[in-house]
Design a protein around this nucleic acid. Structure first.
Lengths: 248, 248
DNA sequence: ATGACGATTATGTATATACATATTGAAGCG
DNA sequence: CGCTTCAATATGTATATACATAATCGTCAT
C-alpha cells in the first residue's frame, strides 16, 4: 500500500481514506444499523479493518465526535449518541440575491436616515450599556413593483464610524457592512407579527395582516455592530432550512 | 519541550497547542487585523513561530478552512476569505422542554387520529411518489391553561409501521418518533400566516390573528418519515438562533 | 512574443512512534 | 465489606518523516 493511497468508490469518485471511514460509520449510524448506545469498534480494530494507521482512524472518529454523532470515552470506547435535539442551518441570504432568484427585478430605496445619540430603546436593541452615537436607517426592498421587505436598522457608530459618512442612497446597509466589518457573532429572532399602520403603509398591505419578522443583532469581537429588523409580508416570504445531522 | 505539551492561557485555562494556534488566527481574522484577502503565514513559518511540527499547524489551518474562514491554495498559501453569506444555527427544541423552560406546566392533548391511504396532498407534503398508508394526527400543546401550539402531523406508515399501533394519547408523536427512528435529514419552512377558523378555534385566538408556522419534513436514509406543522400564536413564540462563523 | 516543460513550492494525506491522561477493573489490605 | 492502590487500556495530542498533488515561475526553444 502506497503512502497516500486513495480509494475508488463504486461510482468512481475518489475519497481520501479518512473520509471513507468517516462516511462508512456515519452511514451505519444514520441507517440505524448502529443504534444509539452502540459501541463503535475500537480504534485498533478499525485500524485492522481498514489497514491504516491509528492516526487516520482517530482523525475520522474525532470528526464524528465534533459533529455530535458519537461520544468518545477514554478507556471505554466510542458510542453512538442519542439523536440530538434538532437544529437547522438557516441560510439568511442577501435580499437582492433572494429577489433575483425569483426572477424579479430588484430595487432598493432608502426611506429614512437619522443620526442621533442612543436612547434607552436603542441601547436595548444593540445591547449597549453606555450612550453613544448611532445611525437609524429605514429602507424598502422591492421585488418588481411590489415591496418585498421593510428594513429597519440601527448601526453603532462607535463601532463603525465610517457609516456616518455614507448616505445609503446607492447601496443597502447590509452589503455595505458585510464588506467592511468582520462579524464574529450574530443572534436571530424570528416571529410573526400583525402589521401596524406604519408597516402596512410601507409594505402596501392591510393593517393587521400577518408579517414575518426577522431580527438580527451582530457583534464584531465583542462590540455590538448593528441591529436590523426585516419585515416581510406573509405571502412574500418563507424561510427554508435544511439540516443533515453531521457535516462529513 | 515535552511531547504533549499544553499551554497556559492568561486566564489559567489549558488549551492544546493546535487549539491555541486556531484561536489565535481566528481572533486575528475576526478582529479585522487580517482583512479578507490577507495571506496567512505559511505552514513552515507558523511552525517556527509556535515551535511545533507542521502536522500541528496543518491541523489548525485545515479546521479553519473547513469552517470557511480561510481558503487554502496549493503553492500559493492560505488566505482570509470574504465574509460568507450569513447562516444561523436554529435550535428547534422539544415543545415540552420549551414550555417547561418558561416555568409553565406542560400538557399535551391529542385531538384527532386518522389512518388513511395517502391522497395527492398527503404525498406532496411527505414527498412520496406512490400512494400508501399514512397516519394523520392533530394535537394541542398547552402551556398552563393556554394553548401554546397546534401540531398537525402526517406519518408515513410504510417507513414507520409501528406507529399504526400507537394511540398517541399518552405520548406526543415528536418524542415517540425521536426515540424510534434515526433521522438523516430534515427540511424546515418558517413563515407567518393568518389564523383560519379551524386554527383560531383550536388555539383560542381571533380568526385572522398572525401565527408563526414551522413546518418540518424528515427523512431517514432517503425515506420520507413525517411531515409536521406547528402553528404558534404570534405572541407566544419567538425562534432564537445564535451563530458564530467558525467552530473552533 | 509565446508556448512547452521542468523545477520549485505549499499544501494534502498518510505513516510509525511517543508520551499524556482519564477511567476501569482487579488486587491487596485494614 | 469497603477502601486504597495500581496496572491495563482507549483515547488525546504531539513528533518526525515520506510521498502525492496542484499551481506557479523561470527557462529555453520556437
Amino acid at each position: 500500500m502506497s503512502m497516500a493511497e486513495t480509494a475508488e468508490m463504486e461510482d468512481g469518485e475518489t475519497l481520501s481514506l479518512h473520509q471513507r471511514i468517516l462516511s462508512d460509520i456515519r452511514e451505519k449510524i444514520l441507517s440505524g444499523a448502529w443504534a444509539p448506545g452502540h459501541r463503535i469498534p475500537f480504534e485498533h480494530e478499525l485500524t485492522a479493518e481498514y489497514r491504516c494507521s491509528r492516526m487516520t482512524v482517530n482523525k475520522a472518529l474525532s470528526q464524528l465526535a465534533k459533529a455530535g454523532l458519537i461520544e468518545r470515552r477514554r478507556r471505554s470506547g466510542s458510542f453512538v449518541r442519542q439523536p440530538q435535539s434538532q437544529a437547522a442551518v438557516l441560510e439568511l441570504h442577501d435580499i437582492r440575491i433572494e429577489v433575483e432568484a425569483l426572477g424579479l427585478p430588484y430595487r432598493y430605496e432608502r426611506l429614512e436616515r437619522l443620526k442621533r445619540r442612543s436612547g434607552a430603546e436603542d441601547r436595548a436593541l444593540l445591547g449597549l450599556s453606555a450612550p453613544g452615537p448611532v445611525l437609524w436607517l429605514e429602507s424598502l426592498h422591492f421585488a418588481g413593483e411590489r415591496p418585498f421587505a421593510l428594513e429597519q436598522r440601527l448601526i453603532n457608530l462607535s463601532a463603525v464610524a465610517e457609516a456616518a459618512e455614507e448616505a445609503f442612497f446607492e447601496i443597502a446597509p447590509g452589503p455595505w457592512l458585510i464588506g467592511r466589518v468582520p462579524w464574529s457573532e450574530a443572534e436571530h429572532r424570528i416571529r410573526a407579527m400583525a402589521a401596524d399602520d406604519h408597516v402596512a403603509d410601507a409594505l402596501d398591505i392591510d393593517p393587521g395582516a400577518p408579517c414575518l419578522v426577522v431580527e438580527r443583532r451582530t457583534w464584531s469581537a465583542e462590540h455590538p455592530v448593528t441591529h436590523v429588523r426585516f419585515v416581510y409580508p406573509a405571502e412574500s416570504h418563507t424561510l427554508v432550512a435544511r439540516f443533515t445531522p453531521s457535516q462529513g
